[in-house]
Design a protein around this nucleic acid. Structure first.
Length: 476
RNA sequence: UCCUCCUUAGCUCAGUUGGUUAGAGCACCUGACUGUUAAUCAGGGGGUCCCAGGUUCAAGCCCUGGAGGGGGAGCCA
């Protein structure tokens, strides 16, 4: 018979009368009698009761917030109101002491900004425990969804020599001696002397490589780290983040949209099922936070929002229709938009927010953007002005998915590459797939941390990844 | 990178028109109490007022520069 349990297992099995072993970290120690213990298996703490007259004072003094303990004792029904069962402690082993004068976490509410500075300890708080457990379930759900639907998980390279999308600043990967950098005759850095014999960077996207695999394996996806050296200081950007990029042969844009919607709904319903206790906690946390805001600025309660997304179809409109809606809006007539609206502009945050939060009040898929504001690889429409792009916008976060049908026609793609000023030579392998057995295909990218933000209701992206990397911040 | 707000005890924050020894709640320490739920009650310790310079008889408060953080924007996922 097993006698070592996690807190989650104790609450599930309620082994009343059984002598068990339990390990965890002390949240509070009340009345010299009640230890509130958490082991990370669930957001709930477990009450362990000890008779202080039976234990040494020097031992009791070591039971403080943060102390790590192994307790042995019998499980009994709890006469108190806060919990169904509790442990009547018979032995206490101190695994790790915690000096209460110096331990920064207290049994009280801390600001997220303060906890960010002690990111090595914040996994011991209720909020971050819940966030990281939900993050796990979401990651697992993503693999589960693709596996059930016939996708193959592929590993695209982390180090690449191509700035695939031509977008954003790159992190350089080099083993050159920084104090003695070899130069060419023209005074440029001589990357032929570098480790790879050419300039190399951390990947900004696995998409181009995923396309190569899709045109052999059919349906594939990547799920890996991505790096952008942008000087972005916002609540929704990281220098290192995780991205999911499915890529499907023989998928048109409409198939792509259907997949993306089904995918998001599957993941959310999986999280609601597997992490219901954590999501209830996060729902309450958000509600408490929203109390300090004026009524008209409050967002929808977390659980209500998630159910709403599950139960309603995403709105689908073209970019051209979106511009019309914006032009006909009362916001536009009253000149509430800071940026002008006209066909051809890149939609600003305020425009996206109006469409999602005011007009449709549901996630929105916008398609067929002007070719000039989208990447070179997106398939050109018959009007030769727009491309088969799709962005999914959600309330609070904005863009969570960006995807497209890919340009499969060799001549059109080559012309676009030249137009965008990209060296065709560096993409010879990408062009080859259009030369040999090309086919219509589509895919999209989902920012994992933005998904975690959406599901947990955390407003800053730095609070949904254990150790965030942002400009000027690489601690831990 | 731009705009804006902030920086006072371990944490969250107050500090009036520039004026004596800089305050509160929580945390911590000591004691009392002991079936509590962020326990309660009494007492105590704890400060480079972000840094540097300036104005003034006098600066936490005013001025200049810098650093760090929050929110918004851009770039994007």
């Amino acid at each position: 018979m097993k006698s070592t349990y996690s807190v989650a297992e104790l609450y599930e099995k309620k082994p009343i009368g059984e002598f068990v072993t339990l390990s965890g970290w002390v949240r509070t120690f009340r009345s010299n009698r009640f230890i509130s213990l958490n082991d990370g298996s669930t957001v709930s703490n477990f009450q362990c009761v000890l008779d202080y007259e039976k234990f040494d004072d020097t031992l009791l003094k070591k039971i403080n917030t943060g102390t790590c303990l192994t307790l042995k004792g019998k499980i009994a029904e709890s006469p108190g109101k806060g919990q169904p069962i509790e442990m009547l402690v018979e032995s206490v082993e101190i695994l790790g002491e915690s000096d209460p004068e110096k331990y920064p976490l207290q049994p009280k509410k801390h600001s997220l900004e303060f906890l960010r500075e002690i990111a090595h300890l914040r996994p011991r708080t209720s909020t971050f425990g819940a966030v990281f457990r939900v993050r796990h379930h979401l990651a697992y759900a993503i693999h589960d969804f693709f596996n059930r639907n016939g996708f193959f998980y592929i590993h695209s390279p982390i180090i690449t020599a191509s700035d695939a999308e031509g977008a954003g600043e790159l992190f350089n990967v080099s083993t050159l001696d920084k104090k003695n950098i070899p130069l060419t005759e023209g005074g440029e850095v001589d990357f032929s002397k570098d480790f790879f014999g050419k300039e190399a960077n951390l990947t900004v996207s696995g998409q181009l490589e995923a396309e190569l695999l899709a045109m052999g394996l059919g349906k594939v996806y990547t799920f890996g780290p991505t790096f952008r050296a942008e000087n972005s200081n916002t609540t929704r950007h990281l220098a290192e983040f995780w991205m999911i990029e499915p890529e499907m042969a023989f998928y048109q844009l409409s198939d792509n949209m259907e997949l993306a919607e089904e995918f998001l709904k599957y993941i959310i319903s999986y999280a609601l099922e597997k992490a219901s206790e954590d999501l209830r906690f996060l729902d309450q946390r958000l509600a408490d936070e929203e109390k300090s805001k004026p009524t008209d600025q409050r967002s929808m309660p977390l659980l209500e929002k998630l159910h709403f997304v599950l139960e309603n179809p995403f709105a689908r409109i073209t970019y051209t229709d979106a511009i019309d809606i914006l032009l006909n809006s009362s916001y536009h007539r009253k000149k509430k938009f800071q940026f002008p609206v006209e066909w051809g502009i890149d939609l600003q945050s305020e425009h996206e927010r109006y469409l999602v939060e005011k007009h449709f009040k549901t996630p929105v898929i916008i398609t067929d953007y002007p070719a000039a504001i989208k990447a070179f690889y997106m398939r050109l429409n018959e009007d030769e002005k727009t491309v088969r792009a799709m962005d999914i916008l959600v309330p609070g976060i904005g863009e969570i998915v960006g995807g497209s049908q890919r340009e499969e026609r060799y001549d059109v793609l080559l012309q676009k590459i030249k137009q965008f000023g990209i060296s065709e030579h560096s993409l010879w392998w990408y062009l080859d797939t259009r030369k040999f057995g090309t086919c219509p295909h589509s895919g999209f990218g989902l920012g994992f941390e933005r998904l975690v933000q959406f599901v947990t209701g955390m407003s800053n992206i730095r609070d949904v990844i254990p150790f965030p990397r942002t400009p000027g911040n690489c601690e831990f």
